[in-house]
Design a protein around this nucleic acid. Structure first.
Lengths: 250, 250
DNA sequence: CGAGGCATTGAAACTTTTCAACGGTCGTGG
DNA sequence: CCACGACCGTTGAAAAGTTTCAATGCCTCG
């Protein structure tokens, strides 16, 4: 793989850094980020990238595709607690928390870029201002989980589903992946069940209700939102918690 | 208030820093932490310390008492997503995330210590190694929320309640506040309902079930665990996610 | 073309909520 | 010092939301 391809591959990651920083990163900082040794890998759908209990020596960025963070009950029940779109670094926490408390799996086929912790540490030592950027990124991830928690704890299935769709449309829209409020949603209904804390059967019925309310259509994994305001209000969706610069999903 | 009292007041905070750091903090670092200007305040029970939407210029540490983080639905339903014991800095995130996505309230009367963000920034600039310590603290907070999310999403009321009791006993035990697996639990049943994502009535029935199973007793806000192993196994409790040095609750 | 898993639907069971009522406790003010 | 109000704790019964079990059709991929 050529250096140029590597450069192209890490583009979503660099964009994300830029969008999270509260200051304009210098040329030197961006160059250092680009120069970090990154091992790019293509991973099939439904594969674990890291697992609860691991003690990774590297973190990764999603470059293409959608991944998810989840935890499992001993009884084998799964709870998905976040989806990751291109640019995200979902296990960055492992830089400072030796043993992972979560698993991360691909939902669609993904291209991911691994970076050794040692390289990140060196980068942060060299460019201390970047500390704050990565720290902010982990704080924003935490804010998303909290919103999901409110969702699962205090909203019914209908509102939860609507909320999830709002979040996905908004986040994908922010990286240009949801034109016309439409995107290829790789999650199956059993997977959505794991994300919402309900059963697959109930996911099905809830989607049916959302369709009948005229808010969305969903056929062969293609979701489009017809009534954005209606969906947002069914979900009580307020995108503030996403901490996006540009909150327009169009 | 004398300097000495201030020193005594911030003791739980210093202990927490020490317990989170992966290295042994130097004398200079501990001295700098002690020297941070801290405004100590006594706050009644059931008061908001900060509110969702705030843009605080300071963070605080709980020095005495128990506080909780929560978010509310527009319909007014509350979801508590974590309790804070002495030593915790529950809104440290506001140092890097301008607008708060959570509210934090006292559950019992609390003594809290406020620290200006500017002072924290100066401290971190002066002692860069401490960055990692505070970062770790925010990452651990996030791990707790994720465990709660698994709890609310994928366990029934009985296991959830057991899990919450396990966590509280363990965390309070770690700071010496739960001798004999007993402590004064200031939360009322309606408040527990907000933490577990169920209704107050159901909290009552679930507590009744836990009592009848011989796992706990709870009278006039005094909780004692009689069958720790039984409670842990009802909860599927594994304290790893707490990232404590010393996981003994005795 | 066949197999496996996803999507869909019905019906019954179960968990949890809602509504309602009542006794107890605690703090406040008369 | 007692009475009152407010809220917590407790219980019952009915309703609602969600799960479970089961069956069937469909899509997709090898």
């Amino acid at each position: 793989m050529t250096a140029q391809m590597q450069q192209a591959n890490r583009h979503p990651f660099l964009r994300k850094i830029d969008s999270i920083a509260l200051f304009k990163p210098s040329e030197a900082e961006m160059a250092a980020l680009s120069a970090m040794p990154m091992q790019v890998a293509q991973i099939d759908a439904y594969q674990d990238i890291v697992r609860e209990g691991d003690r990774p020596a590297r973190s990764f960025a999603v470059l293409e595709g959608i991944a998810c963070t989840y935890k499992s009950t001993r009884a084998g029940k799964r709870q998905v607690m976040g989806y990751h779109v291109p640019g995200d670094m979902p296990d960055f926490q492992s830089l400072y928390l030796e043993v992972l408390d979560i698993s991360i799996a691909t939902v669609s086929p993904c291209r991911v870029g691994f970076v050794q912790h040692e390289a990140v540490r060196a980068l942060l030592r060299q460019h201390p201002r970047l500390n704050e950027v990565f720290w902010r990124a982990t704080l924003i991830d935490a804010a998303l989980v909290r919103e999901w928690m409110l969702n699962t704890g205090r909203r019914d299935a209908y509102a939860r589903m609507a909320h999830l769709f709002c979040e996905l449309i908004t986040r994908l829209g922010a990286v240009g992946l949801a034109p016309d409020r439409t995107f290829e949603m790789p999650m199956t209904q059993p997977e959505l069940a794991d994300a919402l804390g309900i059963t697959p059967v109930h996911v099905n019925r809830t989607i049916r209700d959302l369709k009948m309310a005229g808010l969305i259509t969903l056929r062969s994994r293609r979701l489009t939102v017809h009534d954005w305001d209606g969906l947002m209000s069914a979900a009580e969706f307020d995108p503030t918690y996403l901490h996006l610069r540009d909150q327009d999903a169009s």
